[in-house]
Simulated scan of single mutants.
Amino acid sequence: MNKIISKILSLKIGKGKELKNKEKVIQSAINKTTVEEAYLTNIGFKGDDQVHKEYHGGPNKAVLFYSSLTYDKVNEVLNINLDYKDISPLGENLLVSDITEDDICVGDILKLGEAVIQVTQPREPCNVLNINTKTKEMLKTVIKYGYTGWYAKVLEEGIVKQTDSVELVERIYPNLTIKKLNEAKANPKENLDFIQEAVSCEVLGAPFKKALEKHLG
C-alpha cells in the first residue's frame, strides 16, 4: 500500500519535571520540546522519559501521536488558544497533519522515516492534562469528544525526522478506528457488538482491551 497519509509537523521528547497545581506537586514528562530527529527504539524515542511507567511507555505505548486538527478542535470547543507546535500541552511525541482519530485504526502499520510502527490503542488520558494546560475542563473534553490521540508499538527501530512523512503500509482492521474505540468505551451498552469485535483483535493494547472486556459480562 505505502500511501502517504500525513506529515510529521513536530517531533517531541522530554524529561521528567515537577508540575504544580493548587493542591500538590507531581512529577511528569508530559512537557516535551521539539527536536529535528531522534532514534526510535522498541520502548520509545531515545531521550524521552516516562515517569509513571505503570501507565505510560513500554513496548505497546512506545509512541504517542496527536493531530494538529484535533488540537484545533480542542481549542474551538474550550474557546482557548493552546500553543502546540513547539511544545506538547497534551504530551504527544509526534504532532501530525491531515489525519485524526477518525482516520487511524488499531493495527495500522505506518512507516516514519527509517522506523515502522503499528497502532495499538487510543490514549487513556488522566487529570495531568488539566494541570499541564491549566484548563479544568481539558480531561472531561478530551474524553467526551474522543480527542485522545493514539499509541503505537515499534516493529522496526530507526531514525525519525521532523520532516518525515507518515506512510500507511497496511490496514488490517479497517473497522477499529480510534474514534469508534473511544465511543465504545464511553457508551458500552450501545456498542456491545463492536466491543466483541474489538476485544478479539490481537493488536489492541491490553489496558484498553481490559477496559472493554468488563462490559461483556
Results as ranks from 00 to 15, higher is better:
K53S: 14
N21F: 02
N93D: 07
D108I: 08
F194T: 12
I87K: 04
F45K: 00
L90R: 01
S6C: 09
T163R: 00
N130H: 03
L129V: 13
Y39H: 05
A186M: 14
L192V: 13
M138H: 04
G14S: 07
L64P: 00
G16F: 12
K210Q: 11
V203T: 14
F208P: 03
K85M: 12
V160F: 00
L139W: 07
K134V: 10
C105M: 04
K32V: 13
Q162L: 05
V51F: 08
T177N: 02
L82M: 13
E157N: 05
V74N: 02
D103G: 04
G107Y: 03
R171Y: 11
L95A: 05
N182H: 03
Y39V: 10
V128M: 13
K53M: 11
R171G: 12
S67N: 02
D48P: 06
A152P: 04
N127T: 12
V199D: 08
K7P: 00
E54Q: 09
L129C: 12
I30H: 01
L112Q: 05
I109N: 03
G57Y: 02
E101C: 05
K24L: 10
I4A: 06
V169H: 01
Y71K: 03
K134W: 05
K179H: 09
N31L: 13
I131S: 06
K210T: 15
N81R: 06
T163L: 01
L216M: 13
A184S: 12
T33E: 12
L40M: 10
K180H: 15
E54K: 10
K134N: 14
I30Y: 00
P174F: 02
K144D: 15
D83I: 10
D72H: 08
K209S: 15
P188V: 10
T177F: 00
I80F: 09
I159P: 02
K61A: 13
T33V: 08
N127C: 10
G158I: 09
T41Y: 00
